[in-house]
Design a protein around this nucleic acid. Structure first.
Lengths: 275, 275
DNA sequence: GCAAATTTGTTCGTATGTATT
DNA sequence: CAATACATACGAACAAATTTG
């Protein structure tokens, strides 16, 4: 008996799920049933279920039972710039257009606007001294009414003093801030740099995205620094931090010439081989 | 008593970690010590520790104890094409150069070459019928001797019959296959499309990357389809699947004009706010 | 190299609480 | 309200891994 019992039970159930014997959405036998089926104690059964739950293969619902996870509706965001509009992927109109092109309905909540001292990453990316006041606009975004991403943009205050007053207003800027800043200040976004990382969600994020509060589903964080000015000396004028739940989002980056087709999500089978 | 005891204990320990009272690498009190400290049973203490472990705040080592996780050495991979070589980010020489530019030593194991029927994603991306034989080259890659990524490339067999014999040989192609195919067949890589997703590791991956076998650390999968031919009708000639552990890798994508500086990893503080 | 001590891992049993139907 | 199902919490024993003497 090299492997612990809870592990062998978990493998058996996993096999049942991956083979399709237990279908997505289907309920597993109750802990008590499994207890007799495998001749193990309830705690051991629970350990096996935890093994499956931590891998997002099943989910438990108090008072109801344990269920095979339903495959989520994956959404794909294009991060590279739109070849036609030149707009950055995932930004303003480009993002909305992509959502709509997939036959889904985007919406966003009223932004929360704050003025705060720059700190850490933001100060560095915006190339300002720590403590310099900057403007932040925080906005939850939805697809088909379901939480999709949490987005916070940071701007130097001098954009406001130069005339971009609408940045201060807690109202959506439907045409996108890139377009707005271009119209009002003549600023051109000449490029941007995305940093992509994965980490466990914090409490706010878990709550907003309705992620299980055990941290097993990570979030993908995209830190975008946008530049204006001249190509020889790009100057940062905006930092946008977007947070997406990792279990229902994929990202696409195109470079050079690629076929112009709608990007479908990649099917990820649990049995996938890489070794 | 609204919150369960294990949760309150976990929060207390989390606070100790985030405040710096417990430093990275430091050992937590043993389960027995915590048992008396919090006047709880050992199982309850273990539930609290599991809460922390599932969020990658601590790690347990059998026979030793529980330790605050040491911050990992984050490596940043640039996915966008090198503006000078035009080579795809993360590919062959470009990848090696990036690693070396960071003062680190890249290496890779001997590739495993196989001929197999195309299936699923690969068949679709390479635009061949399911079951068509394709060539796969699988290669583990290391940085400073530590496992960094698992990479598998798929090629249509006709590249071999047209003369790219070295693809069949289980030997590294140091100049990169893009350069090799260009030299031997005159093929030009005119673009590529990356699909990025996050999922739990499979068993092979967990073993290779030495990830905890409870699935709490995900892997980032980058599916790159590379195209050749003419811009009006790009044709796929290679699919590369790269798998990276999510806890020590970040990715950068540049678009347009951005400052030409070495990309540093983003510091991700556990106390990060987004809401 | 071995034995003892320490520490976490696994497994059982039991009781009570909370959410849902 | 009652039944069902998962969640939390206690206690206990032995196994396995590691360090220490």
């Amino acid at each position: 008996m090299p492997e612990p019992m809870y592990w062998r039970i978990a493998q058996d159930l996993r096999q049942a799920i991956e083979s399709g014997r237990l279908r997505p959405g289907e309920q597993l036998p109750t802990e008590l049933d499994l207890r007799t089926e495998y001749a193990a104690s309830r705690n051991t059964i629970r350990d096996a279920i935890k093994w499956l739950a931590s891998r997002a293969l099943v989910e438990t619902r108090p008072g109801q039972g344990t269920f095979v996870v339903d495959r989520l509706d994956i959404f794909v965001t294009t991060l590279s710039a739109d070849t036609e509009t030149g707009l950055g992927g995932g930004e303003g109109i480009a993002a909305l257009a992509e959502v709509k092109a997939n036959g889904r309905e985007p919406s966003s909540a009223t932004p929360r606007v704050e003025i705060q001292p720059a700190a850490g990453n933001n100060a560095e990316w915006l190339d300002v001294e720590t403590g310099t006041l900057i403007l932040s606009r925080h906005q939850p975004r939805y697809i088909d009414g379901k939480p999709w991403s949490l987005q916070t943009s940071f701007y130097p205050m001098d954009l406001v003093s130069k005339g971009a007053q609408r940045l201060l207003v807690a109202e959506d800027i439907p045409e996108g801030t890139v377009n707005y800043l271009h119209d009002i200040l003549g600023m051109e976004q000449i490029g941007y740099s995305d940093n992509i990382l994965v980490r466990p969600p914090n409490e706010d994020e878990a709550k907003f995205f309705k992620l299980p509060d055990d941290g097993r589903i990570s979030v993908v964080v995209i830190n975008r620094t946008a530049y204006s000015g001249v190509p020889e000396a790009p100057e940062p004028f905006r930092v946008t931090v977007s947070v997406f739940p990792a279990d229902r989002n994929q990202f696409v980056m195109n470079s050079g010439f690629v076929p112009n087709k709608l990007t479908k999500p990649v099917m990820v089978s649990a049995a996938e081989k890489s070794g």
